[in-house]
């Protein structure tokens, strides 16, 4: 696992109450999300972070959405 922790740009679909990441851009490269494998939540103080385990067909990535700051981060590459 490689820790990244960088704010990135993510394209998502809001489907009912679900958030489905479709693509993300990291270091000027666009990665298509082929599968969303797992979602979980955690709190950091009062901030709620929703975490997504996604794959682009090769690697598995952990994306995190901070619901208060409304930003996305690429946390890890697994």
């Amino acid at each position: 696992m490689v820790k990244v922790g960088t704010i990135i740009k993510v394209g998502v679909v809001f489907q009912g109450s679900k958030i489905i990441p479709r693509w993300f851009i990291w270091e000027s490269r666009k990665y298509e999300v082929r599968s969303l494998d797992f979602t979980w939540e955690e709190s950091q103080g009062l901030e709620k972070i929703i975490r997504f385990s996604v794959r682009d067909g090769i690697n598995s990535y952990e994306l995190a959405y901070n619901t208060i700051q409304m930003n996305w981060a690429l946390e890890n590459i697994c």
Partner: peptide
């Protein structure tokens, strides 16, 4: 099992 489900490569 959670780690395997979160990362199917495992």
């Amino acid at each position: 099992s959670v780690e395997q489900a979160a990362n199917p490569n495992l």
